[in-house]
Amino acid sequence: MRPFTYERASSIEAAAKVAASNSQAKFIAGGTNLLDLMKLEIETPAHLIDVNDLGLDKIEATSEGGLRIGALVRNTDLAADETVRRDYGLLSRALVAGASGQLRNKATTAGNLLQRTRCPYFYDTNQPCNKRQPGSGCSAIGGFSRQHAVIGTSDACIATHPSDMAVALRTLDATIESVKGDGSRRSIPIADLHRLPGDTPEIETVLEPGEFITAVLLPRPLGGKHIYRKVRDRASYAFALVSVGAVIQPDGTGRVAVGGIAHKPWRVEAADTELPNGARATSRVLLADARSTGQNRFKIDLVERTLGAVIAAAKG
């Protein structure tokens, strides 16, 4: 690990200001992903801004009938929250499908959204990787690519976003609240937060340098059945090959997002309208532009079959 200086932020605005003025600075919250990457010197911040003392660990009702989740709410606490369990069961289900008990106790809501890919070539500093070292090439294309993305990819990168929680938030149409370095605030729909890799896979979100996520907003509850189905290589504590998050109403209408297949949680609103017509019709729209490497072709079938299981479970 490279040496770094450290401060405990005393206010949100001060944290964003320091981070915006120092390109070598990074926020640290739970630290479960950042420290892992710092040990490997994939992340090499010269300054860490500890944001754990900013009082952003509350879950509150909004005047619109939704929920405001503080950026620092731990994954365990979010999954266990009574309102979340009752009204946003999909979110609880996605959270407990991810990581381990120990990690969920540390990992935060904003950190979960901003975690980096688990592409093995991103982690292997001996291999080219456009995300880690822009312009060096993509080792996954033509390499071992069974876990990689099948849609929204580019010639520069086929990495996936690893979060389960983000799939639930995308299904629920959450909004991200943030503060920029100049102190201004903005709201970002979750659909717009994560970018596709394109020619700049190293830029993963639309956040500006120093911009700090303060909360995640959930709109009013949708009702319906909340189902998160995750398919992975072992029964627990593994990243998704494919995951499906869905909210399905008694009449068969609903919405669906898919994890494990793209650089961001994958949702196509036009596919939602196909849900009453079944898994094949829905996945045909969801994956209309899918492009596999061959090794990950199975994911295209797996999305349809997992979605089929979710639709069946919603009827049951």
Partner: peptide, 11 residues
Amino acid sequence: RINSCLTLAIM
């Protein structure tokens, strides 16, 4: 419970 390897002492 947490993983003590993934957290800094100074935190």
